[in-house]
Protein backbone atom coordinates (compact mmCIF):
# COMPACT_ATOMS: atom_id res chain seq x y z
CA UNK A 1 0.00 0.00 0.00
CA UNK A 2 1.49 3.20 -1.13
CA UNK A 3 0.83 6.57 0.41
CA UNK A 4 0.04 9.56 -1.61
CA UNK A 5 2.25 12.61 -1.45
CA UNK A 6 -0.36 14.54 0.46
CA UNK A 7 -0.75 11.69 2.98
CA UNK A 8 3.02 11.47 3.44
CA UNK A 9 3.13 15.21 4.18
CA UNK A 10 0.37 14.93 6.76
CA UNK A 11 2.08 12.02 8.50
CA UNK A 12 5.42 13.84 8.54
CA UNK A 13 3.87 17.00 9.96
CA UNK A 14 2.09 15.07 12.69
CA UNK A 15 5.23 13.05 13.45
CA UNK A 16 7.32 16.23 13.64
CA UNK A 17 4.81 17.81 15.98
CA UNK A 18 4.81 14.72 18.24
CA UNK A 19 8.61 14.64 18.27
CA UNK A 20 8.90 18.34 19.06
CA UNK A 21 6.31 17.96 21.80
CA UNK A 22 8.14 15.01 23.32
CA UNK A 23 11.44 16.87 23.29
CA UNK A 24 10.29 20.23 24.73
CA UNK A 25 7.49 19.31 27.11
CA UNK A 26 9.82 18.14 29.94
CA UNK A 27 11.95 21.26 29.51
CA UNK A 28 8.93 23.47 29.90
CA UNK A 29 7.64 21.57 32.92
CA UNK A 30 10.93 21.57 34.86
CA UNK A 31 11.79 25.10 33.84
CA UNK A 32 8.88 26.40 35.87
CA UNK A 33 6.60 27.10 33.18
CA UNK A 34 3.78 25.60 35.17
CA UNK A 35 2.03 28.73 36.32
CA UNK A 36 2.61 30.75 39.55
CA UNK A 37 4.91 28.49 41.55
CA UNK A 38 6.82 29.97 44.54
CA UNK A 39 10.61 29.72 44.61
CA UNK A 40 11.61 26.41 46.12
CA UNK A 41 13.69 27.89 48.93
CA UNK A 42 11.04 30.26 50.18
CA UNK A 43 9.62 27.86 52.70
CA UNK A 44 12.79 25.99 53.49
CA UNK A 45 15.40 26.57 56.14
CA UNK A 46 18.90 26.89 54.83
CA UNK A 47 21.07 24.08 56.10
CA UNK A 48 24.81 24.26 56.12
CA UNK A 49 25.59 21.09 54.33
CA UNK A 50 29.00 20.68 55.82
CA UNK A 51 27.80 20.33 59.41
CA UNK A 52 24.09 20.13 58.83
CA UNK A 53 22.78 22.62 61.32
CA UNK A 54 20.04 25.14 60.99
CA UNK A 55 21.47 28.44 59.93
CA UNK A 56 20.15 31.40 61.77
CA UNK A 57 20.54 34.60 59.87
CA UNK A 58 22.96 36.87 61.72
CA UNK A 59 21.86 40.31 62.62
CA UNK A 60 24.39 43.04 62.40
CA UNK A 61 24.10 45.34 65.38
CA UNK A 62 22.50 48.56 64.40
CA UNK A 63 22.87 51.92 65.96
CA UNK A 64 19.66 53.59 66.89
CA UNK A 65 18.81 55.83 64.05
CA UNK A 66 16.62 58.86 64.37
CA UNK A 67 14.87 60.26 61.36
CA UNK A 68 16.05 63.82 60.75
CA UNK A 69 13.47 66.40 61.51
CA UNK A 70 11.75 67.58 58.42
CA UNK A 71 12.38 71.27 57.87
CA UNK A 72 9.42 72.90 56.39
CA UNK A 73 10.27 75.92 54.30
CA UNK A 74 8.42 78.82 55.66
CA UNK A 75 8.17 82.36 54.40
CA UNK A 76 10.13 81.61 51.25
CA UNK A 77 8.43 81.27 47.99
CA UNK A 78 9.78 80.61 44.58
CA UNK A 79 6.68 82.08 43.17
CA UNK A 80 7.19 85.79 42.89
CA UNK A 81 3.49 86.39 43.04
CA UNK A 82 2.90 84.51 46.24
CA UNK A 83 2.61 86.66 49.31
CA UNK A 84 4.29 85.23 52.41
CA UNK A 85 1.99 84.57 55.34
CA UNK A 86 1.66 87.38 57.83
CA UNK A 87 2.35 86.00 61.33
CA UNK A 88 1.24 89.17 62.97
CA UNK A 89 -2.22 88.78 61.59
CA UNK A 90 -4.00 86.48 63.99
CA UNK A 91 -7.36 84.92 63.84
CA UNK A 92 -10.13 86.31 65.91
CA UNK A 93 -10.77 84.06 68.92
CA UNK A 94 -13.88 81.96 68.76
CA UNK A 95 -16.69 83.30 70.73
CA UNK A 96 -17.28 81.14 73.81
CA UNK A 97 -20.38 80.94 75.92
CA UNK A 98 -20.30 82.72 79.23
CA UNK A 99 -19.66 80.08 81.91
CA UNK A 100 -19.42 82.43 84.84
CA UNK A 101 -22.63 81.10 86.19
CA UNK A 102 -22.64 77.40 85.31
CA UNK A 103 -25.57 76.75 87.55
CA UNK A 104 -27.85 78.19 84.95
CA UNK A 105 -27.06 75.14 82.79
CA UNK A 106 -27.99 72.76 85.55
CA UNK A 107 -31.25 70.94 85.39
CA UNK A 108 -33.16 69.82 88.38
CA UNK A 109 -33.19 66.20 87.21
CA UNK A 110 -29.41 65.97 86.54
CA UNK A 111 -27.89 63.03 88.40
CA UNK A 112 -24.21 64.03 88.31
CA UNK A 113 -22.23 65.09 91.34
CA UNK A 114 -22.79 68.57 92.62
CA UNK A 115 -20.30 71.11 91.32
CA UNK A 116 -17.99 72.90 93.74
CA UNK A 117 -15.18 70.59 94.90
CA UNK A 118 -12.16 69.54 92.84
CA UNK A 119 -12.28 65.90 91.84
CA UNK A 120 -8.90 65.20 93.58
CA UNK A 121 -10.24 66.05 97.00
CA UNK A 122 -10.42 62.69 98.75
CA UNK A 123 -12.65 63.87 101.57
CA UNK A 124 -12.12 63.58 105.30
CA UNK A 125 -10.44 60.66 107.05
CA UNK A 126 -13.00 58.20 108.28
CA UNK A 127 -11.35 56.12 110.96
CA UNK A 128 -14.02 53.45 110.74
CA UNK A 129 -13.14 52.46 107.22
CA UNK A 130 -10.28 50.39 105.96
CA UNK A 131 -8.90 49.99 102.47
CA UNK A 132 -9.61 47.22 100.03
CA UNK A 133 -7.24 44.97 98.21
CA UNK A 134 -8.60 45.34 94.69
CA UNK A 135 -7.60 48.93 94.17
CA UNK A 136 -4.03 48.48 95.34
CA UNK A 137 -2.79 45.41 93.53
CA UNK A 138 0.43 46.00 91.62
CA UNK A 139 0.43 49.74 92.15
CA UNK A 140 3.97 51.16 91.90
CA UNK A 141 3.44 53.87 94.53
CA UNK A 142 2.24 51.29 97.03
CA UNK A 143 5.04 48.99 95.97
CA UNK A 144 7.53 51.67 96.92
CA UNK A 145 5.67 52.28 100.17
CA UNK A 146 5.99 48.60 100.93
CA UNK A 147 9.68 48.65 100.07
CA UNK A 148 10.32 51.58 102.40
CA UNK A 149 9.24 49.40 105.32
CA UNK A 150 12.22 47.10 104.83
CA UNK A 151 10.29 44.30 106.51
CA UNK A 152 12.66 41.46 107.21
CA UNK A 153 12.25 39.40 110.37
CA UNK A 154 15.53 37.97 111.72
CA UNK A 155 16.39 34.39 110.77
CA UNK A 156 15.57 33.06 114.23
CA UNK A 157 12.46 35.21 114.79
CA UNK A 158 9.77 33.23 116.54
CA UNK A 159 6.17 33.24 115.32
CA UNK A 160 4.03 31.87 112.53
CA UNK A 161 1.01 34.16 112.45
CA UNK A 162 0.77 37.33 110.36
CA UNK A 163 0.42 40.67 112.17
CA UNK A 164 -1.87 43.25 110.59
CA UNK A 165 -1.18 46.94 111.03
CA UNK A 166 -2.71 50.07 109.52
CA UNK A 167 -1.56 53.60 108.83
CA UNK A 168 -3.36 56.87 108.28
CA UNK A 169 -1.90 58.56 105.22
CA UNK A 170 -2.47 62.18 104.40
CA UNK A 171 -2.64 63.38 100.77
CA UNK A 172 0.79 64.98 101.06
CA UNK A 173 2.22 61.52 101.77
CA UNK A 174 2.82 61.85 105.49
CA UNK A 175 1.75 59.21 107.98
CA UNK A 176 0.01 60.69 110.94
CA UNK A 177 -1.15 57.64 112.83
CA UNK A 178 -0.94 53.87 113.01
CA UNK A 179 -2.80 51.08 114.72
CA UNK A 180 -2.68 47.30 114.98
CA UNK A 181 -5.75 45.29 114.24
CA UNK A 182 -3.96 41.98 114.73
CA UNK A 183 -1.14 41.81 117.26
CA UNK A 184 0.47 38.38 117.15
CA UNK A 185 2.56 38.98 120.25
CA UNK A 186 5.70 37.38 118.85
CA UNK A 187 8.90 38.35 117.08
CA UNK A 188 7.04 38.81 113.82
CA UNK A 189 4.95 41.47 115.56
CA UNK A 190 8.17 43.19 116.67
CA UNK A 191 9.47 43.02 113.10
CA UNK A 192 6.21 44.41 111.72
CA UNK A 193 6.17 47.25 114.26
CA UNK A 194 9.75 48.06 113.36
CA UNK A 195 8.72 48.11 109.70
CA UNK A 196 5.86 50.54 110.31
CA UNK A 197 8.11 52.71 112.48
CA UNK A 198 10.71 52.71 109.70
CA UNK A 199 8.07 53.65 107.14
CA UNK A 200 6.79 56.53 109.26
CA UNK A 201 10.31 57.79 109.80
CA UNK A 202 11.13 57.66 106.11
CA UNK A 203 7.87 59.08 104.79
CA UNK A 204 7.52 61.84 107.35
CA UNK A 205 11.09 62.97 106.72
CA UNK A 206 10.60 63.10 102.95
CA UNK A 207 6.92 62.70 102.07
CA UNK A 208 5.94 61.28 98.71
CA UNK A 209 2.50 62.73 97.87
CA UNK A 210 -0.25 60.20 97.33
CA UNK A 211 -1.07 59.95 93.60
CA UNK A 212 -4.50 61.07 92.52
CA UNK A 213 -5.80 57.61 91.78
CA UNK A 214 -4.99 56.49 95.34
CA UNK A 215 -6.28 59.52 97.21
CA UNK A 216 -9.22 57.51 98.42
CA UNK A 217 -6.76 55.63 100.65
CA UNK A 218 -6.23 58.79 102.67
CA UNK A 219 -9.82 58.73 103.88
CA UNK A 220 -9.48 55.39 105.66
CA UNK A 221 -6.95 53.14 107.30
CA UNK A 222 -4.45 51.62 104.90
CA UNK A 223 -3.66 48.20 106.29
CA UNK A 224 -0.79 45.78 105.78
CA UNK A 225 -0.62 42.07 106.44
CA UNK A 226 2.93 41.03 107.30
CA UNK A 227 3.71 37.55 106.08
CA UNK A 228 6.87 35.49 105.96
CA UNK A 229 8.14 34.09 102.69
CA UNK A 230 9.21 30.51 102.69
CA UNK A 231 12.96 30.29 102.04
Amino acid sequence: MALKDSEIQVVSIVGTAVLVGALFAPVLVFAGGGGEQKPMDENLVAIEASIAYSKTPQKIPQKKFKEPDTVKPEGVSHDDKTIPPDDKKKKEPDKKPDLSDISKFHHSDDDDAPVGKPTTDPGKFNGNEQGYAEETKGDPWLGKLRGDMKYQPPEIAKGNDAPVGCIHLTPDGKIVDSKWIKNTGDDLQTAAEAAIAQLMKTRNASPDPVPTHLLSLTTRWLCFKFTVQSP
Partner: peptide, 9 residues
Protein backbone atom coordinates in the same frame (compact mmCIF):
# COMPACT_ATOMS: atom_id res chain seq x y z
CA UNK B 1 -10.15 43.09 108.90
CA UNK B 2 -9.96 45.02 105.66
CA UNK B 3 -6.41 44.10 104.79
CA UNK B 4 -5.11 46.07 101.86
CA UNK B 5 -1.53 45.22 101.13
CA UNK B 6 0.43 42.06 101.70
CA UNK B 7 3.94 42.79 102.94
CA UNK B 8 6.06 39.72 102.59
CA UNK B 9 9.58 39.37 103.96
Amino acid sequence: DGVVVDVSG
